[in-house]
């Protein structure tokens, strides 16, 4: 019963977020601030993880290619497919659920605990629009982060494959371009945008409706991470089924 009412409350929150808009000039500054906090400041960790995962994917593929009839170009092909289709959009989003999601939940949750949200409401400001809407807009720039992750992941794969002596540079590049279907990129970015929306709203929901004190802020951050990850994984399955099967 709790899950059903929480789901309903989540959709009511989304509806209320798009009501009674905050003053344009204030909103613009908030969006720029959130873009910096949520996307630009995540670039470091995304680049770091993407490079090394790309590298590991290549090494694992190369070490498991024992059959002489399978061309070495498959290493580049496998790196591209795994990074573009799954690693960058889905697994980076789960990492972001930990980083960005817990930041959103704890910052909004702290505002709830310290009555800052009540202060906004007393002034007649739609606190959901003021707090959540800029995060949704800022996260619409998240596909740029994922594009960078894809590029760096493939770069990591190239560096590990070629400089590690697993594959020739030209073979890797030819595998990278082999059977490339543009729609796979479209699919990857469609799901990235959906994950961006989930990353902005689910942690906001957990922060905004939390009750209690400082301890509950920590608990809400953990719950938010679990639920954001679960929703991303389930959405990933549904989107893949709808778009690729």
């Amino acid at each position: 019963m709790d899950y059903i009412s929480s789901t309903g409350q989540y959709f009511i929150m989304i509806k209320d977020t798009f009501k009674r808009f905050t003053k344009g000039s204030v909103l613009r500054n908030l969006i720029i601030q959130e873009m910096n906090d949520l996307t630009v400041r995540s670039l470091g960790i995304v680049v770091f993880i993407s490079f090394f995962i790309g590298a590991v994917v290549t090494i694992q593929t190369a070490l498991n290619l024992n059959n002489p009839f399978i061309p070495k170009s498959l290493i580049g092909f496998a790196a591209r497919q795994s990074i573009i289709l799954e690693f960058s959009p889905t697994f980076v989003s789960i990492i972001m659920a930990g980083k960005v999601g817990s930041y959103i939940t704890s910052s909004i949750g702290t505002m709830r605990v310290t009555e800052q949200i009540d202060a906004l409401e007393v002034m007649g400001i739609n606190s959901l629009n003021y707090l959540v809407f800029p995060k949704i807009v800022a996260m619409m720039f998240y596909p740029f982060v994922i594009a960078i992750s894809m590029f760096v992941g493939i770069l990591g794969a190239y560096v590990a494959g070629v400089f590690g002596g697993f594959v020739d540079g030209e073979l890797f590049l030819s595998g990278l371009q082999e059977d490339f279907v543009t729609f796979q990129l479209v699919y990857a970015f469609i799901k990235t945008i959906i994950f961006a929306f989930i990353l902005a709203t689910v942690p906001s929901f957990h922060g905004y409706y939390m009750k209690g004190g400082a301890l509950e802020v920590g608990k809400a951050s953990t719950t938010s991470f679990v639920w954001t990850s679960v929703i991303i994984i389930v959405s990933n399955y549904i989107i893949t089924q709808l778009l690729l099967s």
């Binding site: 702290t110 310290t114 009555e115 800052q116 009540d118 202060a119 007393v122």
Partner: peptide
């Protein structure tokens, strides 16, 4: 409104 804890924006 003056809140108990101040409710100032951090």
């Amino acid at each position: 409104m003056v809140f108990q804890g101040g409710a100032l924006f951090d």
